[in-house]
């Protein structure tokens, strides 16, 4: 599905990631952890083609990312839902329009997708806020709106970068439940977080592989998790 093979990434003269090999199998659940600045966000960006490796290969759905055109990368991203900690929206559009944005840019029939949009908005608990503008949302609502936007195209893979970073414990548990539910629907999930308590709590509900970035390399986390 998505595969990194001996990937390295350098930035500003220094190597940030080195010799990373990772394969995201369909339906798998991964946590990616490590200290701040370890390269978690960079690794996620490599996984959705926002960055190109300085060495090694990234394969997006069996195609080498370097050989893909910009349009091909855009098409690949429609199969990858991305949620960022600082989830950004188009502030001049409503929450519902922001959630529907991936449909809009893919030239999908918006009328045909209306029921899907309503159902999804309800599933993330934002029905009452559908007509609000993003700046009016709380941190938890923004994260849920970003998650809804990430999954409206029913992507194969969902990548979340610190999705619970700006929300309280109760809300982070709610978001995790949504992601676990998506995994049960067959979606491949990768969550980058430094919140070990969150990982421990989630592992009681889902079989997840925990990976840690340490000294630029990716390791399987030990028994402490």
């Amino acid at each position: 599905m998505i595969e990194l093979e001996n990937v390295a990434y350098s930035y500003g003269g220094g190597e940030l990631l080195s010799d990373i090999t990772l394969r995201l199998q369909p339906g798998s659940f991964h946590f990616l952890t490590g200290p701040s600045g370890a390269g978690k966000t960079t690794l996620l960006k490599l996984l959705y083609g926002a960055l190109m490796p300085t060495a090694g290969h990234v394969r997006l759905f069996d195609a080498d990312a370097r050989e893909l055109t910009r349009d091909d990368i855009a098409l690949a991203r429609r199969r990858i839902g991305v949620v960022h900690q600082d989830c950004q929206f188009l502030n001049h559009l409503s929450v519902a329009e922001n959630i529907a944005l991936p449909l809009l840019v893919s030239d999908r029939d918006m009328l045909a997708e209306d029921a899907n949009l309503r159902e999804l908005t309800g599933w993330v608990g934002l029905t009452q806020r559908a007509e609000a503008r993003p700046p009016e949302l709380s941190g938890g609502e923004r994260q849920r709106a970003a998650l809804a936007r990430a999954i409206i195209m029913s992507p194969d893979v969902i990548l979340a970068d610190e999705p619970t970073g700006n929300v309280d414990w109760e809300m982070s548990q709610r978001l995790m439940r949504l992601l676990i539910e998506l995994n049960r629907m067959g979606k491949t999930i990768m969550i980058a977080t430094h919140d070990l308590a969150l990982i421990r709590a989630a592992k009681t509900h889902v079989q997840a592989r925990v990976l840690r970035i340490s000294n630029r390399r990716l390791q399987l986390a030990g028994a402490d998790l």
């Binding site: 910009r70 855009a74 098409l75 991203r77 429609r78 950004q88 944005l101 840019v105």
Partner: peptide
């Protein structure tokens, strides 16, 4: 630039 970043994130092609 931020709008363009969001559009790219959700799979918009450059042409769009």
């Amino acid at each position: 630039a931020q709008v363009i970043g969001v559009l790219r994130l959700v799979g918009a092609r450059d042409g769009y």
